[in-house]
Design a protein around this nucleic acid. Structure first.
Lengths: 339, 339
DNA sequence: TTGTATGCGTTATCAA
DNA sequence: TTGATAACGCATACAA
């Protein structure tokens, strides 16, 4: 395996270890051309590779950050991750990726292990359930940025979508298009899941603000697999809303499943708008009007803040990034359908 | 930051560093109940966390692997990665993820840096252009597994889709359904891109085998953004094939774009089958017949092999994982449409 | 311009 | 049952 060390290089080049070290750290200033060449030669000949671990031990920095997410399979996560990795690449940093599946136990284990591994910082999609641990991290002055969720009582940088704004954008659009009976589909309500909570609340708020009826049976917060069943039930009783707001890609898929099964026409039978600009939005028929999350910006902002923290104390801040409405055809103005 | 070390614990517990070390490594055998308790107490009180970096230096193992991919945004990659991370989690290993964008320079840099960082192994989607470096890795006995591509002259574990089989599955199906005029869409031919090459070759082979005409104008290997234009041209000249085989998700999207723009009907105007089971395959209308890659199995197999290599010398092997045809509606038997 | 000595936080060997 | 001491591979202050 890796056997050749600085000492070997030094010996072959007939200099001391320190000189080699100097050379490696590009402190050429007081080094003779001759020595430099000899060292370069020795390194080349021995195929020497500095052991970064040893250096890290000395310098207390690993040039590695830990990114802890729920599930790398989620599109948003993947995109955020890509942005993080891109920025780290520019700084010669590496990224360790961990999936928690939103399980606090796994999260704790990962944080502990990465901490022990001396990573220089953390970007976390927090489960929100390890409050004590988060606090200890802050106390220890570990650079930390939360993404997607905040945690009550934890004063730390956080980068989130402006969920209120996202819902508002969608709702204003629907209302503008003349829809009055609007429903929502979401996974089950869970207070610590900030985006979900904020979106559901904003939905109610938007209806109230527009003086539109809030019908509880149209606010479907249900396990994803049961959503299309709930819609079926409404259809059977002829109680479907005119339009549906899907709060994320998963729920959108369920609505589309339902629509396909019942052979409904969008937007005639039911209009549709969703958060998350799914990749097939433009090729679906009709093309889907969506509210896109600025995933890359989120990743960039999070990384930027992390590097700022690593550079020195800064006071924690919360960033709300702006969503963008992408108008297509799935929520166009109603035709002359009655009701 | 991290200040408390083993020495601090030792002092507080009134024992020596070595004893603390013993304790941490669960070598309790010859340790008095009393000391054990004192050490546990001290650790708790000081919130001591062992420095894994120091340990790594001593033990020459970092419990970390490097995974180098083209682009984490590709669905296949994400899935493979998730499988890798899951398996690593079970072994208390961590995963460093790197994106090369298929750029050999970036690949080289990443390999060098991760090597210097003493990762215990590599799983690589190789660009194929750093042959010397790959060779040096093998010589140094670094555990390495290639995924998705092999590289000529490099004798190393590799996990790939059985591309021939994938195309065969699809072509047999199309032919069985009565299609005779079959086209293919793919990104530009590039010999080192193994899956693409194998798929294109297998396509030609399947036609020949079935005694069907090979029309070069139906074999579209073109930059993705130009594909739908090429299809347009065919349509205008009334030369569209009856069915199209899209060799991956990207090209599939282009075909769907074309189909939507031209308002064609699938499979009546044109039948469609593709490799990559895109997430919307079942909700699209008509639902899409696809050939799914066993992404998770690929990740698992790659990781399994990597751990085997880390466990001791094994001789390199190539694994071809089986694709799976998922029959839906986009390539169903032709109706009675004339030719 | 280069070398010596020391320390980073562990683990391992060997005494005690 | 526990402790002293020497590595691990590199960086750095200071000396030469």
């Amino acid at each position: 395996m890796q056997k050749v060390t600085m000492a070997d290089v030094a010996k072959l080049a007939n200099v001391s270890k320190s000189t080699v070290s100097q050379y490696l750290n590009k402190r050429y200033e007081y080094m003779s051309e001759e020595t430099r060449r000899r060292i370069a030669g020795a390194i080349e000949q021995l195929q020497y590779r500095p052991n970064v671990i040893a250096r890290s031990l000395k310098q207390k920095s690993t040039a590695t950050i830990g990114v802890i997410v729920f599930n790398i399979l989620h599109m948003l996560t993947t995109q955020v991750l890509r942005a993080i990795e891109d920025m780290c690449q520019q700084h010669d940093f590496h990224v360790i990726v961990c999936n928690t599946d939103d399980d606090p136990e796994k999260e704790k284990k990962y944080i502990d292990m990465l901490w022990a591994k001396q990573v220089d910082g953390f970007i976390i999609f927090p489960t929100g359930k390890n409050v004590d641990l988060y606090k200890r991290m802050i106390e220890a002055r570990l650079p930390v940025v939360f993404v997607d969720r905040t945690v009550e009582g934890i004063d730390v940088d956080a980068v989130l979508l402006d969920n209120e704004r996202a819902v508002q954008l969608g709702m204003h659009y629907l209302i503008e298009q003349g829809y009055k009976h609007i429903g929502l589909v979401a996974p089950p309500f869970a207070p610590h899941v900030i985006p979900r909570t904020e979106r559901i609340n904003a939905f109610r708020y938007a209806l109230r603000e527009a003086n539109l009826p809030i019908k509880e049976e149209w606010i479907i917060t249900e396990q994803v697999k049961h959503i299309s069943g709930r819609l079926d039930a409404l259809l059977q009783r002829n109680k479907l809303p005119e339009a549906i707001f899907a709060i994320n890609d998963l729920t959108l898929m369920e609505v589309l499943t339902f629509v396909k099964r019942r052979q409904l026409t969008i937007p005639h039978d039911i209009a549709l708008i969703s958060i998350d600009d799914v990749p097939f939005a433009s090729i679906y028929t009709p093309s889907l009007t969506t509210i896109a999350q600025p995933a890359f910006e989120m990743g960039e902002k999070a990384t930027e803040r992390l590097f700022m923290q690593m550079g020195g104390e800064i006071s924690p801040q919360m960033f709300r990034l702006a969503p963008k409405l992408i108008e297509r055809d799935s929520a166009k103005k109603r035709g002359d359908k009655g009701e």
